[in-house]
């Protein structure tokens, strides 16, 4: 009686029937209405056992605790910096989380981060009202000087990183660049200018073809051709 109406990796749209009967359970991006499990966002079907979930193909970044993101300093307040997260909400980087140094009372905070600087941070806390605290303490975090910033859609980030970081290390090795991918879709690349550009192109290619399979091979071919 229970019937699956879609195939694994199929593109589905909101309202589309995914399965019939009570056998299947709605996972992320799906909901049950009466007899049917339906999709509630645009994405790719992923079936694991009885649960059907949707991997989104689009959408802006939604801040989550523990995500490593790259943000831009947009304002300086009395006790820290306001960081744009590339989502609907801005975050606060407080003085004690911003730097390990001792900051004297009334010190000029632009010594650490200026307006317009890009900072790698992790999200410490997100409240129900979406007030976000971030921290720049940790390995690899802090101010990003030199290099360039590339922006992609946040839903494509898992594909850019690849399984266990396979895709991004492929690009890193081929171009010899330092790359940091923020979960919010902002990517920092630093290396030799020409190779930076190749890395950016490769990332663009992944973003464009994120919904297709066999991408790793295509990217490795692309990189081999470009980097001689």
């Amino acid at each position: 009686m229970a019937k699956l109406l879609v195939k694994e990796r199929q593109v589905v749209v909101p309202g589309e029937e995914l399965a019939e009967g009570m056998e299947y359970l709605p996972g992320f991006g799906a909901y049950r209405m009466d007899d049917h499990v339906r999709a509630k966002r645009l994405g790719i079907v992923n079936i694991s056992g009885r649960a059907i979930k949707i991997i989104p193909l689009s959408g802006r970044y939604n801040p989550k605790t523990d995500d490593a993101i790259i943000g831009k300093v947009i304002d300086i307040t009395l006790n820290g910096w306001r960081i744009d997260t590339n989502s609907a909400y801005t975050s606060l980087l407080s003085l004690k989380d911003g730097t390990t140094e001792y900051v004297q009372k009334g010190a000029d905070l632009t010594r650490y981060y200026k307006i317009g600087d890009y900072v790698a941070v992790t999200i410490v806390n997100v409240t129900s009202q979406k007030l976000i605290d971030v921290s720049a303490k940790g390995p690899g975090l802090g101010k990003l000087s030199e290099g360039r910033i590339v922006r992609v859609n946040a839903s494509k980030v898992p594909r850019i990183i690849g399984k266990g970081g396979s895709m991004i290390s492929l690009i890193k090795e081929a171009t010899n660049c330092r790359i940091m991918v923020g979960q919010n879709g902002i990517i920092w690349i630093s290396g030799e200018p020409k190779k930076e550009s190749i890395a950016a192109q490769a990332i663009g290619l992944i973003e464009e073809k994120a919904h297709l399979s066999g991408l790793t091979d295509e990217i490795s071919r692309f990189l081999k051709e470009k980097v001689k």
């Binding site: 749209v13 909101p14 309202g15 991006g29 909901y31 209405m33 339906r38 509630k40 966002r41 645009l42 994405g43 989104p56 193909l57 689009s58 959408g59 802006r60 839903s155």
Partner: peptide, 11 residues
């Protein structure tokens, strides 16, 4: 709206 990845029950 669907293209923008917004959660909605149907078109």
């Amino acid at each position: 709206l669907a293209d923008a990845g917004i959660v909605m029950k149907d078109l």
